[in-house]
């Protein structure tokens, strides 16, 4: 794809993510959606940059803050929105919800609400991908908080030992719940753990879409080429509270203002105005298009039926309805 077209495509994907999360927030505030929702507004560049190199048959896994990963991997936004809203038409029939999205048609294997739980699972997807011999790769997203879990360390070791086709994407947004990373570890850059386990690792500005895009391009091709795992640490920031309803009192207002300056979408748009000649009108149209698609998704979700009561305890085991 020529660069100018690629840039516009990436911008559109970021807007799709942003619009999705903003709509979820709005529907939550008005109680159309309930549940424990963790939004990734401000982290769009990581999801979009990372997934832009993936094939549909590559595997992606995420954690509790993973709406955007599923959207960026190409899952149907209508079915995602319906799932988060608990409707029968959602990807999981309403059984999964915000923290447990699965969209196998798009290669989104699972999200999990247990911090760190996705990392060993991703090892498995990578293991299977390697055995499958079709140059598939697996990508796992997790936060800085997960970097202090046992599962994280055990998984880094096995991935590098067995040279699994896996890209670890750490979204270091500086906070786990209400606590800054510095209060959880003396290791400021989680990429250093990967080095310890003998894995190539990069730390980069996660609000710079092109930086993520470039680094992920190399990481994914290394994994695809059978040269083992890569660790990519993206420094970023979530613009909302830890979960919807979190007043985020622990965060300095100045800090928020600083990160608003670094809003990955505005920044990228400014950059491609010069580099690819994006006009304000074009940008406006791209945003409007994304918002329209998401509005459609929201209307689809709202109009969808609730799951039938009889569904409550079906699918407990495979092969039993």
């Amino acid at each position: 794809m020529p660069e100018a077209a690629l840039h516009r495509e990436l911008l559109a994907r970021m807007w799709l993510n942003r619009a999705f999360e903003e709509k979820v927030s709005e529907l939550y505030a008005s109680r159309v959606i309930t549940g424990l929702l963790h939004l990734a507004i401000g982290q769009e560049a990581v999801a979009v940059g990372a997934c832009s190199h993936l094939r549909t048959d590559d595997w992606v896994l995420g954690g509790h803050r993973s709406h955007g990963h599923a959207v960026a991997k190409g899952a149907d936004v209508k079915r995602l929105m319906a799932e988060i809203a608990g409707r029968a038409t959602g990807y999981c029939g309403g059984k999964g919800g915000s923290m447990h999205l699965v969209a196998m048609d798009a290669g989104f294997v699972t999200a999990t609400g247990v911090v760190g739980g996705q990392i060993p699972l991703a090892l498995g997807a990578a293991f299977a991908a390697k055995e499958g011999g079709r140059q598939q790769v697996a990508v796992v997203f997790f936060g800085d908080g997960a970097g202090q879990s046992g599962a994280f360390h055990e998984s880094l070791n096995i991935a590098s030992l067995w040279r699994l086709p896996l890209v670890f994407v750490c979204e270091n947004n500086g906070y786990a719940e209400f606590t800054p990373l510095s209060a959880h570890t003396l290791v400021e850059r989680l990429a250093r753990h990967a080095e310890t386990y003998g894995m190539p690792a990069h730390t980069l500005d996660g609000n710079d879409l092109l930086a993520v895009h470039d680094a992920m391009g190399k990481a994914v091709s290394q994994a695809r080429a059978g040269k083992g795992p890569v660790f990519v640490e993206c420094l970023t920031h979530r613009m909302r509270g830890h979960y919807e309803g979190d007043p985020a009192k622990y965060r300095e207002l100045s800090q928020l203002a600083e990160w608003k300056e670094k809003d990955p979408i505005a920044r990228f748009a400014r950059m491609i105005e010069t580099r690819s000649g994006l006009t304000a009108a074009e940008h406006g149209a791209i945003e409007a298009d994304a918002r329209a698609r998401i509005e459609d998704a929201a209307q689809f979700a709202i109009a969808s039926p609730w799951p039938d009561a009889d569904e409550a305890d079906t699918q407990v085991s495979a092969g039993h309805g």
Binding site: G94, G97, A312, V316
Partner: peptide, 14 residues
């Protein structure tokens, strides 16, 4: 019911 707990507010009340 002997089942994981669904997220949907239409189901978890059962």
């Amino acid at each position: 019911p002997f089942s994981p707990i669904p997220a949907s507010s239409a189901l978890d009340r059962f």
